[in-house]
């Protein structure tokens, strides 16, 4: 009874949130506002993916931007070399990125804790520098130019190109975030999700209970990377241009900040964290050159005020405190 009521309330909240997101553009927001929200939505996707790895499974990952880059470059290269359209390029971007997540995860299984953070940091930098240096294929530091925007067929209007409009990307990203959030929720409630959290709480105990920790940790990294690949393909299609600089260590670190600020392991929390930290630099644009200075200050103060994140529960707090 109680569970049914909770589920009903949750569904009502989800419906209300989707309605707000769908109607937001009708409230007189201009293209710039929509762009800011769209970019924040891409951050939300990435934060959701990273949350599977850091929040659910407890693996500290500092090179997550690499999978964002792999997704973006997969679609970009497919499109530029074989004219693969956006919708057909999505699947390979997600799959290749996910596979890379597993492939880079395999050697990293040998280390844990802070060392895992450092190894993933190394992988992230190696991927970015490889994209910079393999200029025969990736265009080097200048990146890929002229990647096709998505097109859809509308009844009565024929083929419609998203081009550099703001509105279609807003809805595209909103749909992707909804999909990713749904996947995360289903995963969290599944046996897999429960096993991830068991590993996070106590890996040894989880193994003793029959959980194959290695497989499940790889699965978390694969899922996390796949979501980043989706975000990457959308990002590449939206920008039309990608350069290796967009995928640097600072991005990985910012994403981690979003997840921690929102509350590790909380799906709603990390989405709010991504929205706030993703949109804040734009909101503060009026402060001009003092913007990033104050942004740093805001991060410091936020952590002082609420170190467990906005929606981080007491359980998370206990678990993350030094043993």
């Amino acid at each position: 009874m109680n569970a049914a009521r909770r589920a009903r309330r949750r569904n009502a909240w989800i419906a209300a949130a989707m309605l707000v997101v769908a109607l937001l553009p009708c409230l007189g927001l201009n293209g710039y506002h929509l762009d800011v929200l769209t970019n924040a939505g891409i951050f939300m996707l990435l934060a959701l993916g990273l949350n599977l790895v850091v929040g659910f499974t407890g693996l500290l990952h500092l090179g997550y931007a690499a999978f964002f880059a792999i997704g973006a470059y997969t679609y970009g290269l497919l499109n530029l070399h074989w004219q693969v359209p956006f919708w057909a390029g999505l699947a390979p971007a997600v799959v290749i990125s996910g596979c890379c997540g597993v492939a880079l995860g395999i050697p990293a299984m040998r280390v844990r804790g802070d060392y895992l953070a450092i190894v993933t940091l190394g992988f992230g930098e190696i991927v970015r520098l490889a994209f910079t240096n393999l200029d025969r294929w990736t265009g080097g530091p200048n990146g890929l130019l002229g990647i096709a925007h998505p097109t859809i067929w509308l009844p009565g209007r024929g083929w419609y190109d998203f081009s550099v409009e703001s509105l279609p990307y807003y809805y595209l990203v909103a749909a992707a975030v909804a999909l990713a959030a749904a996947v995360c929720w289903r995963l969290a409630d599944s046996r897999i999700g429960h096993a991830w959290m068991a590993i996070r709480e106590d890996e040894l105990a989880a193994s003793c209970a029959g959980i194959n920790a290695t497989h499940l940790k790889l699965l978390a990294q694969g899922w996390g990377a796949a979501i980043a690949g989706l975000a990457g393909a959308i990002f590449a299609a939206k920008q039309g241009t990608i350069t290796p600089d967009s995928f640097d260590f600072i991005l990985s670190v910012m994403l981690l900040a979003m997840v921690v600020f929102g509350g590790l392991g909380s799906i709603v929390g990390v989405m709010i964290g991504a929205l706030v930290l993703g949109a804040l630099p734009e909101v503060m644009r009026g402060l001009d050159q003092y913007r990033m200075l104050l942004f740093g200050l805001v991060m410091i103060l936020m952590m002082r005020w609420r170190p467990q994140g906005l929606l981080g529960g007491p359980k998370i707090r206990r678990e993350l405190t030094r043993a």
Binding site: A257, F295, M303
Partner: peptide
Amino acid sequence: PRLAALITAIGVSFFLQN
């Protein structure tokens, strides 16, 4: 939590750079 201090360190880094 240890991760909170890590985020603070990132904030300090942004602050000093800027």
